[in-house]
C-alpha cells in the first residue's frame, strides 16, 4: 500500500514539475529553426546563468528613446524600420533579430505617444512572436484597446515592456538564450541606430553623443554572448559585424572620477546621488565612423 502511495506521489510530483516548466506553453519546447549545429554538444564558452546576467545587463530600448525625447529631439518616422517586410522573414534567426529591432521601434513610438503607429508595429510583433512560438506573452487585445483609445499610455508602456521582459525570461529559463541573445542584439542595434542618426546633426557635447560613447561598455558583453554560438555561420557573420563596430570604439575613452554618495529629497522621495562620475571622450571623427558602421549593420539586419 505504501509503495503504491509512494509511486503516486512521485508521479504527481513529476507532473507538477512538468506543468511548471511548461507554463503558458503549447508545443513550444521544440526549439526554433536556428541550426542544430548550435545545440550540438559543444560546450558554451560561458554558462547559461552567466549569459542571463549579461543579457539582463543590456539596457532597455525605452531608455534610449527617453533620452531622445528628454533632450528635445523631435519624433521622426524615418528612423523606424518598414514593418511590411516582416512576412518575408523566412528563418527564425532573422525573425528573432527583427523582433528585437521592432521592440526598439515600439519603445520609441510609445515614448513619443504615437499610439496609432504602435498598432502596426504590434501586428508585426504578433506575427513574429507567433512564428517564434512565444506569442503567448503578449496580451494583444489589451494593447490594441489602449492604443486605439489613446487611453492610459503609462499602462500601454508597462504592458509592452513587461511582455518583452517576460518573454525574454521565459526564453532564458527554457535554455533558448540563443533566441534571447538575437532579440537583445536587434534591440541594441536599433536603439543605437536612433541615437546615431540623431547624433549626425547633434551639437558637440550633446547627451546623446555621450550615451553612444558609453556603449563601448556593452559591446564586449554582446560579443561575449554572440561568440557562444559562432559555430553557426549566421552567428559568425554577426560576430564579425560586431567586431567591426568594436573596432570603431577602440579609441573611445571612458574615465572615472570617484566621490562619496549623498542623499537628497526630490518630490518627497529620498534620492541617493552617487558622486562617482564617468566621462566619455569621443572625437568627431570617431563618432562619424560609429554612425556609419551602425547604419551599415542595422541596414544589413533589416534586409537579411
Amino acid at each position: 500500500m505504501f509503495r503504491k502511495l509512494f509511486y503516486l506521489i512521485f508521479v504527481s510530483l513529476i507532473i507538477v514539475s512538468c506543468n511548471s516548466s511548461n507554463k503558458n506553453e503549447e508545443n513550444i519546447s521544440e526549439d526554433i529553426e536556428i541550426p542544430d549545429s548550435i545545440f550540438d554538444d559543444k560546450p558554451l564558452i560561458i554558462s547559461e546563468e552567466a549569459m542571463s546576467d549579461i543579457i539582463e545587463n543590456i539596457s532597455s530600448p525605452v531608455e534610449m528613446a527617453a533620452l531622445l525625447k528628454e533632450t528635445g529631439v523631435p519624433f521622426s518616422k524615418k528612423y523606424l524600420c518598414d514593418v511590411k517586410r516582416i512576412d518575408k522573414l523566412n528563418t527564425n534567426f532573422k525573425r528573432a533579430l527583427n523582433l528585437g529591432i521592432l521592440s526598439s521601434d515600439m519603445g520609441y513610438l510609445n515614448m513619443y505617444d504615437k499610439t496609432g503607429s504602435v498598432m502596426s508595429s504590434m501586428s508585426a510583433i504578433k506575427s513574429l512572436t507567433d512564428d517564434l512560438r512565444i506569442g503567448q506573452f503578449f496580451d494583444f487585445e489589451t494593447i490594441k484597446r489602449l492604443a486605439i483609445n489613446h487611453e492610459n499610455l503609462d499602462s500601454l508602456m508597462y504592458i509592452s515592456v513587461s511582455s518583452f521582459n517576460n518573454m525574454d525570461s521565459y526564453l532564458r529559463e527554457t535554455n533558448r538564450s540563443d533566441v534571447s541573445s538575437l532579440i537583445v542584439v536587434g534591440t541594441w542595434v536599433e536603439g543605437m541606430y536612433f541615437a546615431t542618426q540623431v547624433a549626425k546633426t547633434a551639437p558637440e557635447g550633446h547627451k546623446i553623443i555621450e550615451r553612444i560613447g558609453e556603449q563601448k561598455l556593452i559591446l564586449n558583453d554582446i560579443l561575449l554572448i554572440l561568440k557562444n554560438y559562432q559555430n553557426d555561420k549566421h552567428f559568425y557573420d554577426l560576430v564579425q559585424d560586431f567586431e567591426s563596430i568594436k573596432e570603431k570604439y577602440n579609441d573611445v575613452k571612458i574615465t572615472y572620477t570617484v566621490g562619496d554618495p549623498e542623499s537628497r529629497e526630490i518630490n518627497g522621495m529620498l534620492i541617493i546621488v552617487t558622486n562617482d562620475e564617468s566621462h566619455v571622450e569621443i572625437s568627431k571623427e570617431q563618432l562619424t565612423e560609429i554612425v556609419k558602421i551602425i547604419e551599415k549593420v542595422r541596414n544589413k539586419l533589416i534586409n537579411l
Partner: peptide, 14 residues
C-alpha cells in the same frame, strides 16, 4: 523600511 527610493546615476555601468 521605505517602499521606494531613488538613485541619481552619474556613472554608466553595471
Amino acid at each position: 523600511l521605505m517602499k521606494a527610493f531613488g538613485f541619481q546615476c552619474q556613472k554608466t555601468g553595471v
